[in-house]
Write a protein that binds this DNA or RNA. Structure first.
Lengths: 344, 344
DNA sequence: TTGTACGCGTTATCAA
DNA sequence: TTGATAACGCGTACAA
């Protein structure tokens, strides 16, 4: 776009000062006298001065752009996350560069490479289900790139993490089902290596233990690609249905698995909750319209995006190296509906 | 990020050539001899040379970034659009800057201003429902900024437009309902001034005319904010239900209106399709799980995003001013389900 | 307290 | 066909 913006040297000429003075005055440098500072800032404001981002980037070796790498954009949960990121990024004067991995490690790596060409200042990531090798991320960190992970976060990495309180969420889902009279509760989830899977499993186990319900290993089914293909979910459901000791309820671990599982049960004409109760992690916008209305565990996706971005920006703008990293767990909310009605 | 990339002058030193020669060789300038060209490109490839985007931006007065301005990110339709844009933008070496208007003209203008600071090369827009004043967009165009509109497009503007075939979609929906035995078909839609509303109304009227069904003006209800607040949709539904001559079917004009209307009818315990058939424009991912499964008209959102972006890039990169603008209408697909079962 | 001068990496112009 | 040089706008030593 033809930029008709004025530049620092325009201001310098107009006020009979030098470029250096203007530059310093604009950023409240301490060596500039109050009247000059005021005059310059006033002039800049009136003439709608905007710093040339390209020049700043070239000079300062930073681009004021943040990259977002996530599994899938058109997914209720991640779309809300993006919205949360958008809510902070403009005010802080950053760009957002979005790339989706589509749950593929290869695509993720390819994206990562492309993003690095953009000379990004920071990276917000939710890992693909396939990702186990974190070395590419570690390498980028070592080159000085701040990274914040959210939702699907790695272990053993030194940086901020933002997740929903997955353990608590699974605990609530499971406890709710138990309270409704279901005692044979299965869990369909993502690959065992991912953080969210482990945390949710842990919550599931804790709830069972608390109710003194023995753990049945066959009740836990993993979708190796997080339910990317429906057939994965179908296999998981079939495995459960083939058990001698069939479960009477299923809790599911992601938008896609929840919706997929629901759909498969309906296709199989299995009554919900009569034959099988169902509840799961889900940020879908209208679960109350389903038949039956679906009990969901809602994650604060918008806040996750917002929080992760704020943390990232704090890392980027921190003068001294940050070593005190936090894992923020945001509260979830259980929304009880028909699909987990009391067992008869 | 600490960019450890090599630069043009690194190559120049290594090969004992000048910067200018390297620059030209890399872009296949005709004045560079074949052997030099090859040598330079080979060296660049081997050493993983990437042009510094900030420098290119500063020098060439363009940023290789494209802005996307749309009503709402966490909306099935627009999320798919973003995915479509993402699919082309990286390969063409552009950034994407996203801003959402949340259906507010004021927020849209504010975004527009902020975006212009980023020195964007082009703009992809879907207008907010509130927008009637196009002058800000026209001004940007006159300053030389290429703009492509999609979905909610303006009239009387000289640029490429990309929409779904809204008229055909509404025609199909209406004709389908007629064929199923519904003859009192209402239409809940967005404000009358928007392009999609007019096109869909036109399709609706054409289908009625073709079937020789008289048009009933009270059957057309507008949600002034596109159903941003549920109460708008509720009012529209109530207006229809209060009519002496009640409709026996409703077609709805957007994700939000469709879902909202569905929800309201259920809350009112109105049987679908027994008392009121329902079908609408909807890119929601699992309309078959609703009760009843919802007949939808699906828009090719991914393709719309992709097409709009390709057109925009062609405008940006066109050497000569483009005057031959097209309005591309992408095909829609009607998915028939229970909510429009044959009238008894 | 302010001004001068240089360099970030690239590209365009002009000279060789 | 290639080389030298200047310029894009900004920030920062260092000089004044």
């Amino acid at each position: 776009m033809k930029s008709d913006n004025i530049t620092i040297s325009d201001i310098a000429k107009a006020l009979n000062l030098s470029n250096g003075t203007i530059s310093k005055a604009l950023k409240d440098h301490y060596t500039i006298s109050e009247p000059v500072r005021k005059k310059v800032q006033e002039y800049a404001r009136q003439h709608n001065y905007r710093p040339n981002l390209a020049a700043q980037a070239l000079r300062g070796n930073k681009s004021r752009s943040i990259a977002l790498l996530l599994p899938s954009i058109p997914n209720s949960f991640f779309a809300e996350v993006i919205s949360g990121i958008e809510s902070v990024i403009h005010d802080r004067n950053y760009h957002l560069i979005i790339a989706q991995s589509l749950e593929s490690f290869e695509k993720e790596q390819q994206n990562l490479k492309q993003l690095s060409w953009h000379a990004i200042d920071g990276l917000v990531v939710s890992l693909s289900t396939e990702t186990t090798d974190l070395s590419p991320f570690r390498e980028l960190q070592q080159k000085g790139l701040p990274i914040v992970f959210f939702d699907r976060v790695p272990d053993n990495i030194s940086t901020h993490l933002v997740t929903a309180d997955n353990e608590e969420g699974a605990f609530q889902l499971t406890s709710h089902l138990i309270a409704q009279g279901y005692h044979k509760i299965a869990h369909i989830t993502s690959p065992a290596h991912t953080s969210i899977t482990r945390e949710r499993l842990s919550g599931y186990y804790k709830a069972l233990q608390k109710a003194r319900i023995p753990i049945e290993p066959a009740f836990v089914q993993h979708c190796e690609h997080g339910g990317k293909e429906l057939v994965e979910i179908e296999t998981a459901v079939n495995n459960l249905l083939a058990l001698k000791n069939k479960p009477d309820a299923i809790i599911t671990a992601s938008d896609r698995i929840t919706i997929g599982c629901f759909s498969i049960l309906k296709k199989k004409k299995i009554r919900i909750p009569g034959q099988m109760a169902l509840a799961g992690f889900c940020n879908f916008s209208a679960p109350e319209l389903f038949e039956p209305a679906l009990t969901t565990l809602h994650q604060p996706a918008f806040e996750m995006g917002k929080t992760a971005t704020e943390l990232l920006i704090s890392l980027i703008e921190s003068k001294k190296a940050v070593t005190d990293f936090k894992h923020i767990r945001l509260p979830v909310s259980l929304q009880i509906r028909q699909s987990t009605a009391k067992k008869k």
